[in-house]
Computed example of a mutant assay.
Amino acid sequence: MTNTARRPAQSPVRLMAAFAAPVLLGGALLMGAAAPALAQTSADTAFKATTFNLSAFGETRVAPDMATITLGVQTEGATAGEALKANGTRMNLAMAALKKAGIAERDIQTSNLNLNAQYAYEQNQPPKLTGYQASNQVTITVRDLAKLGATVDAAVGAGANTVNGISFGLTNPQAAEDAARLEAVKALQAKAELYGRATGYKAVRLVNLSEGGGYTPPSPPMPVFAMAKREMADSTSISAGELKVRVDVSAVYEAAR
């Protein structure tokens, strides 16, 4: 005789819950599938937006308030020791003259020191050592441009015989850069308005703004003169002129009719 167990009937509540589970699962699946579609819709909307991608620059000119100049001493001797000793003596005199002219210790920096053997060359003969050449250069910063010419004269008069270059700069370029930034933004806005009139669109929102450029001291230094060997009858005349400070900007504007 077969014993058949009778299964209890499920309550309506349980039947509804069992029936609802696949629906919820299906809903979850449908939501997961819709996420990429929503992202794609947002991307399409951004892509279809009309934008102006523009760039402009601003410039300001300002008189420099400082200068850097490289000068030095070049000497020769039969031996390396003689060349270096003569160089050191003349450089010490030149340094003393610079300090007497008002150049602070912090504004004097050794920038080059060399000792080279000198040779004579004859055809079909090995090079012949003739002596040694020593050179020592310092880069100085002059913060009072009215004294620049007199400072150079003082150094040369004391023994410096090489002046390689000069460059002018700004002690604090912040104000000049900010003025250039304002000019750059004005030019950028004017360009956006011009394109708006030309296309029938109007820039309604600034989306992105980036900056490039800024103050950069002249490099390499402008040549002045080398191997200075002359009488200083008058103070050397040096014109500082003006520096050009430029700032470049680029922006993205959202545009609409």
Rank of each mutant, 00 (worst) to 15 (best):
N3V: 12
N3L: 03
T4Y: 11
A5W: 04
R6Q: 09
R6M: 06
R7H: 09
A21E: 08
V23D: 08
L24T: 13
L25S: 06
G26S: 12
G27W: 09
G27L: 13
L29W: 12
M31C: 07
A33Q: 12
A34G: 02
P36I: 14
P36K: 14
A37M: 07
A39D: 14
Q40V: 06
Q40E: 15
A43T: 00
A46S: 04
F47S: 06
L54E: 06
L54W: 03
S55K: 02
S55W: 01
G58M: 07
G58D: 02
T60S: 11
T60W: 05
M66W: 01
M66P: 01
T68A: 04
T68N: 05
I69A: 02
T70D: 06
V73K: 02
A78M: 14
T79S: 11
T79W: 02
A83G: 02
L84E: 08
K85D: 10
G88E: 15
R90V: 04
M95K: 12
A96M: 04
A96N: 12
A97H: 13
K99Q: 02
G102D: 07
G102A: 04
D107Q: 09
D107C: 09
N112C: 07
N112I: 11
N114T: 10
L115K: 04
N116T: 07
A117S: 12
Q118T: 07
Y119A: 05
E122Y: 07
Q123Y: 01
P126Q: 11
P127L: 14
P127T: 12
L129M: 15
L129T: 01
T130E: 02
Y132W: 09
Y132S: 04
Q133C: 00
N136Y: 10
V138T: 09
I140Y: 03
I140G: 03
T141K: 12
T141P: 12
T141N: 07
V142N: 09
R143Y: 08
R143W: 08
L148R: 04
L148F: 03
A150W: 09
A158M: 06
N164A: 15
I166Y: 08
I166Q: 05
S167R: 15
S167K: 13
F168N: 07
L170R: 06
T171E: 13
N172C: 03
P173T: 06
P173I: 06
Q174N: 14
E177S: 10
D178Y: 03
A180S: 07
L182Y: 08
A184W: 00
V185M: 06
V185L: 12
K186V: 11
K186C: 01
L188A: 11
Q189C: 02
T199S: 13
Y201N: 11
K202T: 00
K202R: 05
A203L: 11
V204W: 07
L206R: 10
L206A: 09
V207S: 00
V207R: 05
N208H: 00
N208K: 08
L209T: 11
G212C: 01
G213T: 13
G213I: 12
G214A: 10
T216G: 00
P221N: 13
P221T: 14
P223Y: 00
M227K: 10
M227Q: 13
A228R: 06
R230M: 10
E231R: 06
A233Q: 12
D234C: 05
T236G: 12
S237A: 08
S239K: 14
D248W: 01
V249W: 02
Y253M: 08
A256R: 14
A256S: 14
